[in-house]
Simulated assay, not measured.
Amino acid sequence: MQLRSLFFTLALVLLPPAVHADAGHDHGEAPAAAAGPGLPRFAATSDLFELVGVLDGKKLALYLDHAGDNSPVKEAQLELDIAGTRVPVTRVAEGEFQAALAAPLAEGVSPVTATVVAGTETDLLAGEIDVHAAAHAHAEPAGRRNALVAGAVGAVLLALGAVWGLRRSRTARVGGAA
């Protein structure tokens, strides 16, 4: 009986504060969450095309659309130059490309130029990518880290409670038999 009470008490203590209801609690609109720093990106547009690049370390995801209707550009060829260095590009799907940089981009603003050839249309797009050191740090969100720590502490406490309960029940059986 005491072991069950211990487990219920531990479960209630370890529940995250968001689970506990308070006075005036309702399920109305939640406030918008503050967004952390995103991955560095650039956009380059013209009358014909729109190109967006998202940098994740040395990997670059590229998305090429028609400027008029935002549809992916089919059968396109893309050449990319970042800060004076030609970057090899591979087509992944219609309007989607990927590139691997030889080295991470230097911190600061770097010029980006792209040449697009799609059928009979050819265009030169230009933009800039702004890279900061904080954007390269892939720190785990604090909320998730706190939840993992709370889960680990809870698991340890439950294990200790189980060991304590087993020892106590063995001691009671041994002591009761004598």
Rank of each mutant, 00 (worst) to 15 (best):
Gln2Ser: 05
Leu3Ser: 13
Leu3Thr: 05
Ser5Ile: 15
Phe7Tyr: 13
Thr9Met: 11
Leu10Tyr: 04
Ala11Arg: 12
Leu12Arg: 12
Leu12Pro: 04
Leu14Val: 01
Leu14Asn: 06
Pro16Phe: 00
Pro16Lys: 00
Pro17Val: 00
Pro17Glu: 01
Ala21Arg: 04
Asp22Ile: 04
Ala23Gln: 04
Ala23Asp: 06
Gly24Phe: 03
His25Leu: 04
Gly28Gln: 14
Glu29His: 06
Ala30Pro: 02
Ala30Cys: 01
Ala33Cys: 00
Gly36Val: 00
Pro37Lys: 03
Gly38Ser: 04
Gly38Tyr: 01
Pro40Phe: 04
Arg41Leu: 01
Phe42Ile: 06
Phe42Gly: 02
Ser46Glu: 10
Asp47Gln: 13
Phe49Pro: 04
Glu50Ala: 12
Gly53Phe: 09
Val54Asn: 07
Leu55Cys: 06
Gly57Thr: 09
Gly57Asp: 09
Lys58Met: 10
Lys59Pro: 00
Leu60Val: 03
Leu60Ser: 06
Ala61Trp: 10
Leu62Ser: 02
Leu62Lys: 10
Tyr63Thr: 12
Leu64Val: 00
His66Met: 02
His66Ala: 03
Ala67Lys: 12
Ala67Phe: 07
Ala67Asn: 09
Asp69Asn: 15
Lys74Glu: 08
Ala76Asp: 02
Ala76Tyr: 01
Leu78Asp: 11
Leu78Tyr: 06
Glu79Ser: 15
Glu79His: 15
Asp81Ser: 06
Ile82Ser: 12
Ala83Tyr: 10
Gly84His: 09
Thr85Val: 10
Thr85Ser: 15
Val87Gly: 02
Pro88Leu: 06
Pro88Val: 11
Pro88Trp: 04
Pro88Phe: 06
Val92Tyr: 02
Ala93Leu: 07
Glu94Thr: 10
Glu94Asp: 12
Phe97Trp: 05
Phe97Ala: 07
Gln98Asn: 13
Ala102Leu: 07
Leu105Ile: 11
Leu105Met: 11
Ala106Glu: 14
Ala106Asn: 12
Glu107Ser: 15
Glu107Leu: 13
Gly108His: 11
Gly108Asp: 14
Gly108Lys: 12
Val112Gly: 05
Val112Asp: 08
Thr113Gln: 07
Thr115Pro: 03
Ala118Leu: 01
Thr122Arg: 14
Asp123Lys: 08
Ala126Thr: 13
Ala126Gly: 12
Ile129Ser: 06
Val131Lys: 02
His132Gln: 05
Ala134Trp: 01
Ala135Glu: 03
His136Leu: 09
Ala137Cys: 05
His138Met: 01
Ala139Thr: 05
Glu140Ala: 02
Pro141Thr: 00
Ala142Tyr: 02
Ala142Phe: 08
Gly143Ala: 08
Gly143Met: 08
Arg144Thr: 07
Asn146Tyr: 04
Asn146Pro: 02
Ala150Asn: 14
Ala150Pro: 09
Ala150Val: 06
Gly151Ala: 11
Gly151Asp: 08
Gly151Asn: 09
Ala152Cys: 07
Gly154Ala: 13
Val156Met: 08
Leu157Trp: 11
Leu158Asp: 01
Leu158His: 03
Ala159Gly: 11
Gly161Arg: 09
Val163Phe: 02
Trp164Tyr: 05
Gly165Asn: 07
Gly165Met: 05
Arg168Gly: 14
Arg168Val: 06
Arg170Thr: 02
Thr171Met: 06
Ala172Trp: 15
Ala172Gln: 09
Ala172Asp: 14
Arg173Gly: 08
Arg173Ile: 01
Arg173Thr: 04
Gly175Ala: 14
Gly175Phe: 15
